[in-house]
Amino acid sequence: MKATRDWFGETLVDIAGEHDEVVVVNCDLGSATKALRFRQEFPERFFECGIAEANSIGLASGLAQEGLRPFVSSFGHFLTGKFLEIFQSVGLNDAGVVLVGTHAGLAIGKDGPTQMGLRDLALMRTLPNVEIIHPADGVETRRALEHIAAHRRPTYLRLCRQPQREVHDESHRFEFGMPDVLCEGEDLAVFTMGGMVEVVLDSLEPLAEHGVRPTVVNQSSLPADREAVRALGRRHASVFVLEDHFVTGGVADEIGRILLELDRPPRFGVWGVPDYGQAAAPADLYARYRLDVPSVVEHLRAFTHRTPA
C-alpha cells in the first residue's frame, strides 16, 4: 500500500521520459509531495520557487503559454489558497498548468486546519475550464497522469497522504468525468472519491449483515458526466455522498445538482466535514468527524432505513 502522492512521484518520472514538455515547478515541499524524484532524473526541468505558491503559479502559466506542460506541486490547502492567481493566470488564460495539491482531507492530522486540504474542490469547481482529478489508488493515479499528459487543459490533481490499497486491476481504463462503479448494489448508490473509496468498500461487509447492499461509485473526476450520473440516479431509489472535504462545495454539490434535473430525483444524503477541522492523529480525526468505517456503516444504515417524509 502506498499513497497516491507516492504513485504520482514515480509515475511522473516515467511520463516525463516520454513527454519532453513535462516540467515541475516546486514550492519547497518536494519531499512531501514526492516531486523530488523528478529533480533527481530531470534536474534541468525542475524549477524551485521556494515557499511562494503565487509566484510558482505565475511562472507555470508562462511556461505553459510557451508550450510546456508544467506541474506545480504543493499541499492542496496552500496551492488553492492562491485562488486569485489561479483564476487570473491559469483560468482566464486557459493555461495548460497542472496544479498538484497533496495532503487532501483530514489525513494531514496533527498539522491541523492551517494545512488541511478541505475546501480545495469547492474552489476549483468554480472554474469552468479546469479538470479536477482525485484518484483512488495507484492504478488510477497512473492512468490519470497518462490522461493529463496527453492534453493541455488546466488541471487540478488532488492527492492523498495516507496509504491506499489497490481497488483497480491493471486493465482499468480512466475515463474523465465518468462514474467508476466499483460494486453493483441494489436501491442505494454511494458516491465518493480518493481516500474515502477504500473506507466505503470496507463498510460493505458489515452493511450486508444489516441488509444494506449499496452500489459504490468512485467519482474520481469532475465535472462529472451528467448523463452517466443521471442514469445511476434513475436506477437507485437513494443516493448518498461521502467526502473528505467540506460538506459544501464538493462532490455532493456536483452530484446533487445533476440529480435535481431528473423528473423523479432519488432521495439524497451527504456527509462531509462541517467545520474547519482539528489537529489530532488521522485515525482520531476520521472517527471524530464520523468518516471511518463504523461511522460510514451507521450513516448508510440510518439513511437506508429512514422513512421518507
Rank of each mutant, 00 (worst) to 15 (best):
L222H: 07
V251W: 02
G177F: 02
V270I: 12
F176T: 06
D225K: 04
V13E: 04
G195S: 13
V23R: 01
E170D: 15
V130G: 03
A231T: 11
H77Q: 15
T155K: 10
I108N: 13
V167L: 13
L36G: 05
I108R: 12
L29Q: 04
A64R: 09
E186F: 00
E131V: 04
D275M: 10
F38I: 12
M1S: 14
A279P: 03
R142C: 12
C27V: 10
T4W: 00
E48Q: 11
V200Q: 02
E21A: 13
E170F: 02
I133K: 06
L201G: 03
M124L: 14
A283H: 13
D169F: 10
V72T: 08
L127W: 02
P135D: 04
E166L: 14
F303S: 09
A16W: 01
E131Q: 15
I258N: 03
D275K: 12
R301I: 15
V212G: 07
D169E: 13
D253A: 14
R39I: 01
V23H: 01
G67V: 05
V197T: 06
A35E: 08
V270P: 05
E184W: 00
A302F: 05
W7E: 11
G112E: 09
A280Y: 07
R173I: 11
L84P: 02
G101E: 11
Q219K: 04
P179F: 01
L59I: 14
P70K: 07
Y286P: 13
A228Q: 11
L84R: 03
V139G: 07
L159D: 13
K110C: 03
S295R: 09
I258D: 05
P265Y: 03
R290T: 13
R301S: 10
L285Q: 13
G233W: 05
L36C: 10
Y156E: 09
G109D: 10
R161C: 13
D253Y: 00
Y286V: 14
D202C: 00
R235C: 02
M196A: 01
L106M: 10
V293K: 09
A302K: 10
R143D: 08
I132K: 06
K34V: 07
L262E: 10
F46M: 13
G62H: 04
L12Q: 03
G211Q: 11
R165Q: 15
K34N: 12
V167M: 10
A281K: 14
D202K: 00
Y276W: 12
H168W: 09
R257Y: 02
H19I: 03
H151R: 15
P113I: 09
L262R: 02
E175W: 00
G138V: 06
L204I: 08
A149Y: 07
L84D: 15
H299S: 11
L232G: 07
F71L: 13
I133Y: 07
D120P: 03
R267C: 12
F174H: 06
H103M: 09
A122T: 05
R213K: 07
H305T: 14
